[in-house]
C-alpha cells in the first residue's frame, strides 16, 4: 500500500516522513503479536512463553495436525463454513437481485435489515439467535451453528453482488432477452459471468468470517466445538500451548490467504470493467 502512494513534492517531504513512521508503527503494533504466535509455534519450550525462545523445533507441527480433538474441531469448522457460505451465496444473490431489479414496498428497510447482522455486535446477534432458537424448541446442534453463521455471511455476498449489479449496465439483460434468451439463459450467459468474481470474492470473505467466528458460535452451538472455540479452551491448558500456537498459525494462513486473493479478484475486475 505504501509503495503505491505517489511521492509528493519537496513541500510535503517532512509530513510524509512522519506519516511513514506512523504507518510503520501501526503495522508493527498490529503484526508483532501475530509474529510472536508464529515464533512460539517453533519454540522448544513446552509450556511457558520465554523470549527469545530457548531453541527452535518443528516437532509441534505433526503433533498438532495429528491431534484428534483438533481434527474434529477443524472438520466441524470447515463443514459449518462451507454450508454457511453456500447458503449465503444463494440467499445473498437472490436478495441482491430482488433489491436491484424491483421496486417494492419496504425495499429500503429490507436492505437495511439484511446488512444489520454484520453491523450489530456479535453478542447481540448471539443472544437473539439463542433465544429465538430455544423459543422455537430447535435443539442446539451443528445446524444451528450454520444458521447463526449464515446470518452474517449473507451480508458479505449481498453487498458484493449488489455493488456489481450496480456497475453492470441493465441494458445487457434486456439485450440478451431481446436476442432470444429466456431468463435462465440470460442468467447463465450474461448475469453470472458479470457477477462471477463478485460471488467468488463474497464467498471467500464469508468463508473466512465463518471460519474464525467465536461469539455467535458460542450462543448457537450445542456441545460442538469449532476450531476457534477449541483453541480458546486450550489456552487454559499450559501443556498444549505449542500445539495451540501451531493451530493458530494454520488458522491465520487458512483465512488470511483467501482474503488476500479475494481482494486481488475484486480489485482486478474493477480495473477491467472500466
Amino acid at each position: 500500500m505504501l509503495s503505491k502512494t505517489p511521492s509528493k513534492q519537496s513541500s510535503g517531504e517532512r509530513s510524509s516522513m512522519f506519516l511513514k513512521l506512523a504507518a510503520l508503527g501501526t503495522l508493527l503494533f498490529l503484526h508483532i503479536p501475530l509474529w510472536l504466535i508464529f515464533i512460539y509455534s517453533f519454540t522448544t519450550d513446552e509450556s511457558a512463553y520465554t523470549f527469545p525462545p530457548p531453541g527452535l523445533t518443528l516437532k509441534w507441527i505433526p503433533q498438532a495436525i495429528a491431534n484428534p480433538a483438533m481434527q474434529d474441531a477443524l472438520f466441524l469448522t470447515l463443514r459449518v463454513a462451507f454450508l454457511a457460505t453456500a447458503a449465503a451465496l444463494i440467499l445473498g444473490t437472490l436478495a441482491a437481485s430482488a433489491v436491484y431489479r424491483y421496486d417494492f414496498f419496504g425495499k429500503e428497510s429490507i436492505s437495511f435489515m439484511l446488512v444489520l447482522p454484520l453491523a450489530l455486535p456479535g453478542i447481540v446477534t448471539g443472544i437473539a439467535m439463542r433465544s429465538a432458537i430455544s423459543l422455537m424448541k430447535i435443539p442446539f446442534s451443528f445446524w444451528t451453528i450454520v444458521i447463526g453463521h449464515a446470518t452474517f455471511c449473507v451480508v458479505v455476498v449481498y453487498n458484493n453482488v449488489l455493488a456489481r449489479f450496480r456497475r453492470t449496465a441493465g441494458s445487457q439483460v434486456e439485450a440478451s432477452m431481446d436476442l432470444g434468451a429466456n431468463s435462465f439463459q440470460t442468467f447463465w450467459h450474461i448475469v453470472l459471468p458479470n457477477i462471477g468474481t463478485a460471488l467468488l470474492a463474497g464467498a471467500i470473505l464469508a468463508f473466512s468470517l465463518s471460519f474464525d467466528e467465536v461469539i455467535v458460535t458460542t450462543f448457537t452451538a450445542g456441545n460442538q466445538q469449532t476450531l476457534p472455540i477449541w483453541i480458546f479452551s486450550q489456552m487454559l491448558k499450559p501443556r498444549n500451548r505449542p500445539i495451540t500456537n501451531v493451530t493458530a498459525m494454520l488458522v491465520v494462513l487458512l483465512t488470511a490467504l483467501p482474503i488476500l486473493f479475494a481482494q486481488q479478484l475484486t480489485a482486478h475486475s474493477s480495473d477491467s470493467d472500466k
Binding site: 449496465a169 441494458s171 445487457q172 434486456e174 439485450a175 432477452m177 431481446d178 436476442l179 432470444g180 429466456n182
Partner: peptide, 17 residues
Amino acid sequence: PPYARDVNTVFQDYALF
C-alpha cells in the same frame, strides 16, 4: 416476452456484453 418476439433492438448505450 421480448425473447418470443421476432424483433431486435439496437440500444442507446449499445449494451454489448
